[in-house]
Design a protein around this nucleic acid. Structure first.
Lengths: 129, 129
DNA sequence: GTTCTTGCAAAGGATTTGCAACCCA
DNA sequence: TGGGTTGCAAATCCTTTGCAAGAAC
């Protein structure tokens, strides 16, 4: 974790180490509230917001938005780019590979390039059907 | 507009008529604030929130979320299901056909069915490059 | 010693809830 | 008339900003 921060030009601080550890251990996207709970030591929410914002810019965490109005963050280094499918009943979440590139060979007219994308699936898991 | 509301079991009220007219005329997703401006008569924001929620459930409007923390709504009846590409510089928006179904032949393991999805592209339009 | 970070307080902005008045069917 | 709707006020929730104290390098 320290090297990750140093290489990105960040200072190595306890809140950030614990933040990354919590995210890494979770292995799935977490909200700020969830991260706070998972971090052993209490940290200020504001610090989390600022750290996550910086880490997201640096590509160390991925920001995931599930149209819930609550941002979630996922530890990026351990997994290749991917998306998620979420059970609308129980919230169970699975990873889904990204096949978006396959059908965006050329940018839509009026656009010179596609820089990023959202893609999330929603459904019912086998336990909730 | 009236028939649309009636068929869905809603009462025909002025705020809802104006809301739908504004959305229809716009032809693209609008935020609550934008809708308020486009409606001739001033309406209460709360009424909009409630109406849009009901209309979205009924499928008369589509809710679009662009990870901005601000919900947008689009008049559904005039366009088939589609997605959007948004210029990250100027906000210009284009429609994109939905080809998601093509690569979700079978639901991911652990899931019995896929009920909905998000898909938004971000990029740079030809005027902003 | 600088400069980046943190934490606390407070502000900001979107959305929701409560409730009485209103009006469509 | 009765129940869905509206509008106003206030509350809630997530996120951002300001600023002084604290900690890395």
């Amino acid at each position: 974790m320290s090297k990750l921060l140093q290489d990105a030009g960040f200072r190595v601080t306890k809140p950030r180490i614990r933040l990354l550890q919590a995210l890494s251990k979770a292995g799935k996207p977490l909200s700020i509230k969830e991260i706070l709970v998972k971090m052993r030591t209490k940290a200020d929410q504001v610090t989390l917001y600022r750290s996550l914002d910086a880490l997201a810019r640096a590509g160390i965490v991925d920001r995931v938005d599930q149209n819930s109005g609550i941002a979630q963050y996922e530890f990026a280094p351990e997994k290749p780019h991917h998306h998620h499918i979420i059970c609308t009943d129980c919230g169970y979440m699975d990873d889904v590979s990204c096949e978006v590139q396959q059908f965006i060979q050329t940018p839509p007219k009026q656009f010179s390039r596609v820089t990023s994308h959202n893609f999330e699936l929603f459904g019912q898991c086998i336990n909730c059907r």
